[in-house]
Design a protein around this nucleic acid. Sequence first.
DNA 1: TTCCCTGCAAAAGTTTTGCACTACT
DNA 2: AGTAGTGCAAAACTTTTGCAGGGAA
Lengths: 166, 166
Amino acid sequence: MPRPAEPTAAGRTVVERRARVDTQRQMELFHSRLKQRGLKSTAQRDDIARVFFEIGHHISAEQLYAEVKKINQHVGYATIYRTLRLLKECDLVSERHFDDDQARYEVVGERHHDHFICERCGKIIEFENESLERLQEAVARELNVTLTRHKMELYGLCSECLAQSR
Amino acid sequence: MPRPAEPTAAGRTVVERRARVDTQRQMELFHSRLKQRGLKSTAQRDDIARVFFEIGHHISAEQLYAEVKKINQHVGYATIYRTLRLLKECDLVSERHFDDDQARYEVVGERHHDHFICERCGKIIEFENESLERLQEAVARELNVTLTRHKMELYGLCSECLAQSR
DNA sequence: TTCCCTGCAAAAGTTTTGCACTACT
DNA sequence: AGTAGTGCAAAACTTTTGCAGGGAA
C-alpha cells in the first residue's frame, strides 16, 4: 500500500495509486455512449479503447498505436486518432499537452489531479492537493472568471534522478 | 494604473500590467549575449527580436512571422524559428504550449506568473499569486522532488464572455 | 577573408482527410 | 440493405534541416 506523502500546513498531498481504472466499467460506458449517439461498436474501437483503459494514463497516440498493433494487426493510425477523438467526445478521455510536441491522453472521470514531470527520466507523478484546488478557485474569483478546468504541472527532478546526479 | 484584484485569505492575486517590457534594454541584452557567444548581430535577428519584444507575450511563430513580414519582406520562416531558438538560448524568451498545437513565446526575466485562458475569446490573463507559489513549493517538498519550474493554467470564461453568454 | 547567417525548398513529425471498400445493425 | 467505419495514402500543419549564396566582423 503506497503511503501518502507528509502533510504540511499547506495541505495534504496525496500521490495517486495506480490501476484505478475499471476497464470493464469504462467499456460499458463507451458502448452505451456510442449507442446513445447512434454510433456503432466495432472490433477496432473496442480493441483501441480496451488497450487504452488497461494501459491508462499519459499514453501518446504513437504508443497506443504500437500496443494495439500487438493484438490487432489491422488497425491504422487514422483509426487510433478517430477513436481517441470519439472517446474525448464521450467524455471518457482527455487530451493533454505536456512540454513535448505530441499529445498525451488520459482517462477521465476520477478526481482531478495534477502532475509532476521529471525532466530527466520523464517519469510522471500524479498528485492531489486539496488546498491547491481551493486556491485555484479563489484565484478565479479574484480574476472575476469562471473556471471550467485547470491544470498545474511541476517540472524538475524526481528523488531517484536527484540521488543519481550527486 | 491598474488595480490589483481583491485580496482574500488565500493570498493576493495581482493581474499583471501590460507594457512591462523595455524593448531597448532587451535588445541590448540580446546583443551582448550574442557577442559573448561569438555570434553575429544581423538585420533579421534585430527585426525579429524587436518586433517580438514590442508585441510581447503569447505570440506564436506564425503571428510573429506575419508581423515581421510587415517591416521586412526578406525574412523566412526558418529565420523566425532559428531566432526564437537563439532567444531561448539567451534566456530572453520562453516557449509555452497551451492547449492548441502551436507553441507560443513570451519574454523571460520578469517575475513568475501563471495564466488564465478564456476558452471562448482566447484572451490570456497573466496573474501572480504568492500563496500559489508557496503551495507549489510545499507540494514539491512533499513529493520529495526538486522543482526547476512549474506552470499553472486556468481555463474558463472571462467576465466579458460570461456576460455575453446570458 | 572567413565563416556565420539567410532564404528557399525539401524533409520530418504529428494529426487529419478523401476515397473506395468493409462490416455493423 | 443501408449507412457508418476502416485502411491506406495523401494532405495539412508546424517545425527543422541541407545547401548554395550573401553579409557581418
